Computed example of a mutant assay.
Amino acid sequence: MWAPPKAARGGGDRLLRANDACIADRCGGFQSVPLDEYRQNLKAICSSLKERWPDTAVILITPPPIDEEGRLKNPYVEDNSGLPDRTNESAGAYARACGEVAKESGIQVIDIWSKMQQYLGWEKSFLRDGLHFTDGGNRLLFEEVVNSLRKEGLSLQSLPIDQPLLYDINRANPLETFKK
C-alpha cells in the first residue's frame, strides 16, 4: 500500500479532503490545512506516484463547491456563531491550487468545483448538506472520472481485473477467495 512521503504527511490523515478547506478559526477549523501546505502535500503525492509508478494515470479532483446556506443548516457540530465552517470562496482557492498543481505536474484535473457551479440550482441538486454529494452530485463526478479515464486511454473494458468480482467472493470465508 502506498503512503505519502514524510513531508506530505503533515497532520496525519489531513490529506486529499475537502475538509482541508475548512476555515481555521471556525467550528471545523481543527480539520483545516493551510493552503500552502495543501499545495505542497499534493505536489509531494503526485511526485511520489509518478516516481513509483511512472505509467500510472493520476487524476486530481478539486474540492467541491460549498453551499454555505446548507452548511449553516447542517453544521458538523453544534455551532452558535452563525458562520459556516467553510465557504465557497475558500473551497475555490483550494480548487485553484489543485488545478495549478495538476498543471505543474502534467496530470489531469477534474475541476468539480467549477463544473458543479455551471448548473442552475447546483447547491441543492448536487449537495445534500452544503458539502456532501447527492445522487446527482455523485453521478456528475462519476461521469467526469469516466471522461478523464477515457482521455488516458482507459475504460472498464480495457482494464484488467486483478481482484475477484463481488459475486465471486466466498461470504463464509472471504480471505480464502483472495488467496487464489
Rank of each mutant, 00 (worst) to 15 (best):
A18T: 13
N19F: 12
D20E: 14
A24E: 14
R26Q: 13
C27L: 06
Q31M: 14
S32V: 06
P34Q: 05
L35S: 09
Y38V: 04
R39I: 01
R39Q: 14
K43V: 05
I45Q: 03
L49P: 08
R52T: 15
T56Y: 00
T56P: 00
T62N: 07
T62Y: 01
T62C: 04
P65C: 07
I66V: 15
R71S: 05
K73W: 06
P75C: 01
Y76F: 14
E78G: 12
N80E: 11
G82H: 03
D85F: 08
A93T: 11
A95K: 03
R96W: 04
A97R: 03
E100S: 00
E104I: 00
G106V: 00
I107N: 00
D111L: 07
S114C: 08
M116T: 05
L120Q: 12
L120D: 15
G121T: 10
W122S: 08
K124W: 13
S125D: 14
S125Y: 08
S125E: 15
L127T: 08
L127F: 07
H132Y: 11
F133R: 06
F133I: 02
T134W: 01
G136K: 09
F142C: 12
E143N: 11
E144A: 13
N147P: 00
N147I: 04
S148N: 05
L149A: 12
R150W: 10
K151C: 08
E152I: 01
E152V: 01
E152P: 11
L154T: 09
S158Q: 08
